[in-house]
Simulated scan of single mutants.
Amino acid sequence: MEQTQPTADSARRIDLTRQVDVQYWCRIFDVSMDQLRDAVHHAGHQVEEVERYLRLKRTQPHRA
């Protein structure tokens, strides 16, 4: 049976090396894999920090 949710540890940390985690968090945050990777690159692997980063990014005006 294929696992569709992250492990207990990845409920707090986003592991970009685990495809199931990447797919799960992309669905939860409604972002692409590239957007998730960018957020983790800037905010770190902690779920709360990635969520905060994505929320701030969505509220910032787009720059040309």
Rank of each mutant, 00 (worst) to 15 (best):
L54S: 12
P6T: 13
D21A: 13
R55C: 04
R58Q: 10
A8P: 02
P6K: 11
P61A: 09
V20K: 10
M1L: 08
R13G: 00
E49K: 01
S32R: 13
L56C: 03
S10L: 01
V40F: 03
E48P: 00
R55F: 06
Q3G: 11
V22G: 04
H42T: 01
V47Q: 01
V31F: 13
D38V: 03
D34N: 07
F29C: 06
Q23N: 04
I14H: 04
Y24C: 03
A64P: 05
M33C: 04
A8C: 05
T59W: 07
M1T: 09
E49Y: 01
L16K: 10
L56H: 04
Q5Y: 15
Q23P: 00
K57G: 02
Q35V: 05
E48Q: 00
Q46V: 13
M1E: 11
W25C: 02
R13I: 08
Q3V: 15
T59M: 13
R37Q: 14
Q19A: 15
Q5F: 15
Q3K: 14
I28N: 02
P61H: 08
Y53Q: 12
D30A: 15
E2T: 13
V22I: 12
A39Q: 04
R52C: 11
V40Q: 03
R37C: 08
H45T: 14
Q60P: 00
E48G: 01
S10C: 15
Q19P: 15
C26E: 12
D30G: 10
A39S: 07
V22D: 05
R12M: 07
T59I: 12
R13T: 08
R55K: 05
V50K: 01
D30F: 14
S10D: 14
L54E: 10
Q46A: 13
L56M: 05
R52P: 09
A8F: 09
G44K: 03
T17V: 11
E51D: 00
E51I: 00
R63I: 11
R18L: 15
A11Y: 02
R37N: 09
S10G: 05
V20Y: 14
M1N: 10
E49P: 00
H62S: 05
T7L: 12
D21Q: 13
R55V: 05
P61M: 08
V50G: 00
T17K: 15
A39V: 01
D38H: 06
R63A: 10
T59P: 00
Q23M: 04
H42L: 05
A43L: 01
Y53T: 11
Q5K: 13
T7M: 10
P61Y: 10
D38Y: 03
D21R: 12
L36V: 07
Q60L: 14
H45P: 10
R52D: 14
Q23W: 04
I28L: 14
E48M: 00
E2F: 14
R52G: 06
R12A: 10
L56V: 01
T59R: 11
Y24T: 02
A64V: 06
R27L: 12
H41N: 03
T7K: 09
E51T: 00
H42V: 03
R12H: 11
I14R: 04
V40E: 00
I14P: 07
D9R: 08
A8H: 03
Q19Y: 11
T59V: 11
V40D: 01
A11I: 01
L16Q: 12
L36C: 06
V40T: 07
E51G: 00
